[in-house]
Computed example of a mutant assay.
Amino acid sequence: MAESDINYNLAHFVASYGKTSQIPASTCPEVCFVGRSNVGKSSIMNKLFGRKGLVKVSSTPGKTANVNFFEADGIHFVDLPGYGFAQRSKSERDRWARLIGEFLDSPRSFNLIVSLVDIRHDPSKLDFEMVEYLREGGFNFVVALTKADKLSRSQQMKQLASIRKQLGLSGDRIFITSSQTGAGIDELKCRISSACLEEDGDTESVPDNA
């Protein structure tokens, strides 16, 4: 499917939920974004939507404390709380972990999950745990390496190969992105179209524990 099959100009905020019990059941394809609190998740989503301020970008990592839903052209885009920000209280971090876990354990469409990892660093323990959770759960997922504009092209390729090996991913599961230059955004759009628009695209995306 071509990226133009989804009109991202229609993107708008839908709702924010602090508890999974508040979240309505899936009624349309869903794409979820998950990653560390300072990985640039909001910036990548804004670049995807072509809107600078739709997904709030905070100067304070760990600000996103709820599950936030956006919609574009009949597809829900789910912004999950960032994980692993040490300067938040343990009770807050525990709540966010429960919120993420309960959401991913719920019986939703989960057409695609985009796990974001900072290309400048080796994956953290939590990054490893997230990718393993998605793999073991049978989710349809990709890993998007963020902040590629901070590295030279040769450094990007070196880190891509290293992180792919560390996470044990095939080449089609991982790619480079930048919210500054737009690198990888077309690739992300193609992955989303394939997962959400192709016939029976979500057949295998519902996790085994749903």
Score class of each variant (00 low, 15 high):
P81Y: 05
R120Q: 12
G50Y: 02
K90I: 13
D94H: 10
M130W: 00
R135Q: 13
N68P: 11
G84S: 12
R95S: 14
F128W: 06
H121F: 13
G137E: 09
R93C: 09
K125W: 03
G82F: 02
D127Y: 05
R135A: 15
S89I: 02
F70V: 12
A86N: 05
N111R: 09
S43G: 00
E92A: 15
F69Y: 15
E132M: 04
A86V: 14
S58G: 07
H76G: 08
L116I: 15
G50I: 01
F69T: 07
L126Q: 14
K56D: 01
A72H: 01
F128D: 11
Y83A: 11
V55A: 14
G74W: 03
R135N: 07
G101A: 12
R36F: 03
H76M: 10
D79E: 10
Y133E: 08
S124D: 09
S59K: 14
A97E: 10
N38Y: 07
S91L: 12
V131N: 12
I113Y: 00
P107R: 04
S59R: 15
L104V: 07
G84K: 00
R95Q: 12
N46R: 10
F128Q: 13
R36W: 00
K52G: 06
L54F: 05
A86G: 05
R120H: 06
S42M: 06
V131G: 03
F85M: 14
S59T: 14
D127V: 06
L54H: 08
N66L: 10
S59V: 09
V78D: 04
N111H: 15
S37N: 02
T60A: 11
F70I: 12
V78L: 09
R51N: 11
V55T: 08
K52V: 06
V117A: 07
N111L: 12
F85L: 14
L99M: 10
S91K: 15
R135F: 02
F49S: 10
R120A: 09
F110S: 08
L116N: 07
N68C: 13
D122A: 14
A86W: 01
V78N: 03
M130P: 06
R135I: 04
S115Y: 00
E102G: 06
L134M: 12
R95N: 15
S109D: 09
S115G: 13
F128H: 13
L112A: 06
V67M: 03
A86C: 03
R36Q: 11
W96F: 12
K125R: 14
K125N: 08
L126C: 05
E136P: 01
I113D: 02
V34Y: 00
N111S: 14
R51W: 00
N68H: 04
F33N: 04
Q87K: 15
V57L: 06
F77P: 01
V39M: 05
E102C: 06
S43K: 01
F69L: 15
R135V: 03
G40P: 03
R51Y: 00
Y83T: 07
